[in-house]
């Protein structure tokens, strides 16, 4: 039995310790907003926050996250900054198929949480690990820029 803290709730899960967090979240806890795209940390679809920083849950053995706070896309909507990001995503019509967007939003949110100064280069560095096969990059950039401006951290 492992104890996990996901979105503020404590869960007891009976899984092998080397099972990646991604599958625990999706298959055991049934939180399917976090997606599977590659399984090798190359696409970012599985991004969640571990104590606030973005991690790729597909290469994260669940036993190594015990005691840390995990936040998934389902757990962010309470936070005002997250709601701003989601709003910007809608205003800029970012999503196409939408499959990558949970991961994109988690990475963007981590960037906005973390940085006091954001420009295009900072967006590239923070978002380059998230693939979008529909190639919505132009809009992702605009949406992040928009939120950065509205919270006063945009510094071109």
């Amino acid at each position: 039995m492992l104890t996990l803290n996901v979105n503020g709730t404590t869960h007891q899960v009976d899984v092998p310790g080397d099972m990646p967090l991604l599958w625990v979240i999706r298959d055991i806890l049934k939180l399917t907003g976090t997606k599977f795209g590659c399984g090798i940390a190359q696409c970012g679809a599985c991004t969640v926050h571990m104590d606030g920083k973005p991690v790729r849950s597909c290469v994260l053995p669940v036993q190594s996250v015990a005691g840390q706070e995990i936040t998934t896309i389902e757990g962010i909507s309470e936070k005002p900054l997250a709601r701003k990001v989601q709003r910007a995503w809608l205003d800029h019509e970012v999503a196409q198929c939408g499959y990558c967007q949970s991961g994109q939003i988690m990475s963007a949110l981590a960037l906005l949480n973390d940085q006091t100064s954001i420009n295009d280069h900072a967006i590239d560095l923070a978002m380059a690990g998230n693939l979008c096969r529909c190639a919505t990059y132009t809009r992702i950039r605009e949406a992040i820029k928009d939120v950065s401006e509205s919270v006063g951290v945009w510094q071109p």
Binding site: A41, Q42, R56, D124, A128, G129
Partner: peptide
């Protein structure tokens, strides 16, 4: 590094 490595 940002593209392929920083995730891990």
């Amino acid at each position: 590094f940002a593209d392929a490595c920083v995730s891990c």
